[in-house]
Amino acid sequence: MAQCLRGKSAAAAGEAALRAAAPWQRTASASYHHTIQAVPRETAGPRAAARERRHGRIPAVLLSLAGTGPGDGVAHRKLLTADRKQLAEMLKQSPYFLSTPVRLQVRAGERSTAVVHSGTVLPIKVHRDETTGNILNLVMVQADEGTMLKVNLPIEFKGEDACSGLKKGGFLQKIRTSLVYLCPAEHIPPKIVVDLTNLDVGDRVLMHDIPVHPSLKLLSKNETMPVCKILVSKPVE
């Protein structure tokens, strides 16, 4: 009987601790990696930011555009605080964090369950400490449907194992690692894929050769610039 009571007591204590935990610490794992949990932040500046970091939180800023286009300027800046552990886990799980729209939930306070703001955002900048690599702050932009955003999309090269030019001993020269597109928020791809399968020695892939959603507009002064080439051999350094 004593063991049973102790077991019930421990379970009750565990449930109480779970209820007392911050919302991001009790969120289901499925949404944990797809929804940034944040709370409002009233003060800005280096001292306030350092205080947030000491308590395991990351200062964040949410930008809202004045219109639907990237040239419309910023209409509003909302100061927020995100949980450091959750943000670090999201960065670990998503190699394309800065090109993937995610959900944002802003609660009234750290222990509150009341949601004061929610929507889709695009993380556009993560500042890290150059020495330790620790996350210092996060910048996001509101990514409502229909909003046009300028996004730096990383390039992923695939098909190297099947590339005929590389099988002949050629060398893949990667000239660009990313391209900038103007994208509707609802059609932002996490990456741009370049297929090397059918390339032979001497072939190249130009910027405008890469297939993307028709709503995306490549932002480049010269769309005929190559993103990669198959050279006869590796260039001499």
Results as ranks from 00 to 15, higher is better:
223 E>A: 13
62 L>E: 03
216 L>Q: 11
38 A>M: 03
220 S>G: 08
123 P>T: 05
134 N>H: 14
134 N>S: 12
95 P>M: 10
226 P>C: 07
145 E>T: 14
149 L>R: 13
45 G>I: 09
11 A>L: 08
222 N>A: 09
66 A>N: 11
175 I>R: 03
132 T>H: 10
88 A>Q: 14
217 K>G: 01
78 K>C: 04
206 L>K: 15
209 D>C: 12
81 T>G: 03
120 T>Q: 13
227 V>E: 01
187 H>Q: 13
102 V>C: 07
119 G>H: 08
187 H>K: 15
41 R>L: 04
3 Q>M: 04
144 D>L: 06
51 R>G: 06
63 L>M: 09
38 A>P: 01
27 T>S: 07
51 R>N: 12
2 A>I: 08
116 V>K: 08
186 E>G: 08
149 L>C: 09
145 E>W: 00
153 L>N: 11
82 A>E: 05
27 T>C: 06
170 G>R: 11
192 I>Q: 10
211 P>W: 13
81 T>D: 00
61 V>C: 10
125 K>W: 02
122 L>H: 07
186 E>A: 11
211 P>R: 14
98 L>D: 03
193 V>K: 10
164 S>R: 13
72 D>S: 15
181 Y>A: 11
168 K>T: 05
221 K>H: 12
170 G>Y: 01
148 M>P: 00
13 A>Y: 01
188 I>F: 02
107 R>V: 06
29 S>L: 08
158 K>G: 08
161 D>Q: 12
197 T>Y: 02
172 L>V: 04
176 R>V: 03
167 K>E: 05
135 I>W: 03
196 L>E: 04
194 V>S: 07
71 G>K: 15
43 T>M: 07
44 A>W: 00
34 H>P: 00
6 R>F: 03
79 L>A: 08
53 R>Y: 04
228 C>L: 05
1 M>W: 01
41 R>T: 07
146 G>L: 05
179 L>E: 09
169 G>R: 11
12 A>E: 10
223 E>H: 09
71 G>Q: 15
81 T>W: 00
11 A>N: 05
116 V>G: 07
169 G>Y: 02
47 R>G: 07
173 Q>P: 00
143 A>W: 01
235 P>G: 11
233 S>L: 01
10 A>V: 03
131 T>A: 15
160 E>H: 04
168 K>N: 09
119 G>P: 05
13 A>R: 14
160 E>F: 00
152 N>I: 02
200 D>S: 13
21 A>L: 09
53 R>F: 01
89 E>M: 05
41 R>W: 00
90 M>H: 02
76 H>E: 14
